[in-house]
Write a protein that binds this DNA or RNA. Structure first.
Lengths: 216, 216
DNA sequence: CAGTATTGACAATCTATATTGTCAGATAAC
DNA sequence: GTTATCTGACAATATAGATTGTCAATACTG
């Protein structure tokens, strides 16, 4: 009875399980292919071949190419976000320690997994307004991990100036990451982290100055 | 005799003058159109219409769409670069003053001319390896205006770490600019300059620390 | 095993744009 | 005014890839 409501099983999975499995295979394949030839060079056909599926299943799970890019981005970002949050939490309460822990995890993963890194850093830029919005949101979230706005409740809805500070910080970190990756990791992780951290510290300290009424 | 070597005149210009005039009109039109619909949304036809020319003349001056993008970028960057250099020079010898002068000019121009700004900040990213190379080169040049590497000859070929510092600095400034533009200039120019300058100072001071043997 | 749901391969269609080609009319040179 | 050059409009072609559709083969169900 309980079964009769379900769809016919294939390979031990019901219809929905197979669908989500295919969806995942497509996302993994997309990350792979984007990493090789970039989003713009990636055809639907190529991704389907990499996923060992046919176009039909592409359109079963995604309305179009862009939807898959967004899903793949979300996939990569989700992992990274969870890991960074955990690393920061494990590092205790000191802001400087948490910052270092999060950055270290970030750059370590970047080095370990170049293809997802490319999706995360490069492929996501300038595709369409929808994609940009997704990216913007992700960056805000990462910025909050590095310099938590909730430390001081008064500041939790960041003022306009503080928001430019986070934006600058994230921009610096991402640019550093991009260069580091594209030059094939010439510096040790610790060294890159130290450099990135110095930019993050700007966002921390300047925000305090400004709050005290200093206008530089 | 002198004339007989020249091509027939039209509108008082010889063949080559007309060609360069058309080329310029195409570049101006491109900046205009990119500013409206973005590089990806810009068709050859639309640019030709904006320039009041036909496709024929497009291919007379440019091998393809991308070549025009690169030319338009160079055009915008060339102006900006000259102006920033001049502003820095006019500000005297103090590094802090020069920095402020250059940044002030940069953000002022950004606000005055949103369309070239879009070409400069957005459209140039992630089109192709060739375009990225052009951008990379431009950024290096701008970075050198903000924090001249030649101050200390020993440092003139920047070490790998110092190079990441400039990259981070430029990344921060550009991200700030992007956000500021896309939010339609919510802060005064001076305020944005102050924030951007604080990131630039990182590149200045950290470089010195590192040279003295400090490793953060 | 018979019947049906599901799959995989691939053809057909559709759309959009770049790029090249044609030609009649306009403009300058003499 | 005649001729050679240049111009503008537009048609023709080429390409590339997304999206949809067909159908036989396969895997499950009872």
């Amino acid at each position: 009875m309980a079964r009769s409501r379900k769809a016919r099983l294939y390979g031990g999975m019901d219809a929905e399980e197979r669908r989500t499995e295919r969806r995942l295979k497509l996302i993994d394949a997309a990350i792979e292919v984007y990493g090789e030839v970039g989003y713009r060079g990636a055809t639907v056909k190529a991704i389907c071949e990499a996923a060992e599926l046919t176009e039909r299943y592409f359109y079963e799970s995604f309305a179009n190419s862009e939807a898959l890019l967004i899903a793949a981005y979300g996939h990569v970002v989700g992992h990274l976000h969870d890991e960074m949050t955990a690393a920061a939490a494990a590092a205790g309460d000191d802001a400087e320690m948490r910052l270092r822990a999060a950055l270290t995890l970030y750059f370590t993963r970047l080095k370990e997994h170049p293809k997802p890194a490319r999706v995360f850093l490069l492929e996501i830029s300038g595709i369409s307004p929808a994609v940009d919005a997704v990216k913007l949101d992700a960056l805000r979230v990462f910025s909050d991990i590095l310099v938590p706005p909730a430390l001081d409740p008064k500041r939790s809805d960041k003022g306009a100036a503080a928001s430019l500070l986070s934006v600058g910080m994230v921009g610096a970190v991402i640019s550093i990451a991009l260069r580091w990756v594209s030059k094939q990791y010439p510096q040790a992780v610790e060294e890159v982290v130290a450099i990135a951290a110095s930019f993050c510290r700007v966002a921390l300290t300047e925000a305090d100055h400004r709050e005290d009424g200093h206008l530089s």
